[in-house]
Design a protein around this nucleic acid. Sequence first.
DNA 1: CGGAAGATTGAGCGTAGTCAAACCGAGTGG
DNA 2: CCACTCGGTTTGACTACGCTCAATCTTCCG
Lengths: 210, 210
Amino acid sequence: MNAALWADRPTRHRVAAGRTLFAQGDGFHGVFMVRSGTLKSVIILADGRQQVCAFPMVGDVIGLDGVVTGTHGTTMTALEDSHVREVARHPWAHATAPDPGMQEHVSELMARDIQRAHKIHALLGCANAQERLAAFLLDQSRRRYAQGFSPCDFHLRMSRAELGSYLCMSMETVSRTLSGMQRKGWLRVDKRHISLADVGALSRRFGALL
Amino acid sequence: MNAALWADRPTRHRVAAGRTLFAQGDGFHGVFMVRSGTLKSVIILADGRQQVCAFPMVGDVIGLDGVVTGTHGTTMTALEDSHVREVARHPWAHATAPDPGMQEHVSELMARDIQRAHKIHALLGCANAQERLAAFLLDQSRRRYAQGFSPCDFHLRMSRAELGSYLCMSMETVSRTLSGMQRKGWLRVDKRHISLADVGALSRRFGALL
DNA sequence: CGGAAGATTGAGCGTAGTCAAACCGAGTGG
DNA sequence: CCACTCGGTTTGACTACGCTCAATCTTCCG
């Protein structure tokens, strides 16, 4: 809400593309807010299987999951050169009266995270491959638009495999489904660049999923 | 952590089986903690499709998602007669200095919710029907055990259809998979009663998913 | 130029969904 | 007491969506 709250905290970090901010199992460092760029949050199961849980972007708060256990539950890797700001080192571990305004704000962002997770759960349970992908693209469109960019043209920062993991489908299905949508004239795909032909029509067809 | 914090709040509610505590779209009432019983949290998409997001049980905090938007994002229905306690009516809506200890505690529970959501996402992405169901049963086993009950015998409070929705599979697949596990001698199924034959063996085989 | 990583496309297969029938237990009422 | 309904469950048969395996192509970069 009011980012100026932490203006006096000089705890900025640059995370180069491909570098990890923190890894699953690491001791809890703190909570960060993404200032620029895109990252991916990955869970690694005990047997090595991996799952992308989120693609945090500008404004998102990351590292919250470590609050409970004291160790991070996911590995956070930058998909492109990104900047994050540490908004709280030990927001709840120390009983030393924390900044109430900060905690209030972080709580709101946590609630938004929970809501988002529920929606993804619904998406995975209710939607097929095409619907999932369309919903994801519409979400990306919205978020880019909210940042002042065109809602019709944007670059995906993640590989087909990463996107597939996030949406719980194989990268081949991602590729095939994108091709199919292009064949239907809904969008244009050029590598990772997406041009939505008619955002309104897409929203009307797939908006129920968001 | 210290439930005594709110001991002076007499805001308890009884929710009879089948009744809803709050519905999607309702104005935000408050945050509740489950004191007894089991509920289900359901998202209803714009086109009517439904998705079970969680089965809150004793100790879980519910209603958090309404904090951001001011309206509840899910419908919360009791699967059996349950009791909840309102732990905060408007924890963040009013800037009037809220109880910092309460907010701290709620934040921890929100973080746990986020972690849980990530694990479910991983489960849906990485595991097949059998693995999902086994992971769910092991989770139930643990939670019952944590409440002082046997980890081997417990009652499922939800129907096959509700369980299937939660795990993103059809109720027929739930039924078939349970039958298959019984055939392998891993457990006994009698209606909604589950008897795990060897929790250790199950954990060894499917523990990687939790 | 050659190697690597990502993306696309095809062929074949398998898991889980859909449709349908039968079963079961709990209520309800004739 | 039996017949009936109704919701939940089980099981079968068939289908299809998406996965796996594999080949090809592009782009990027040493």
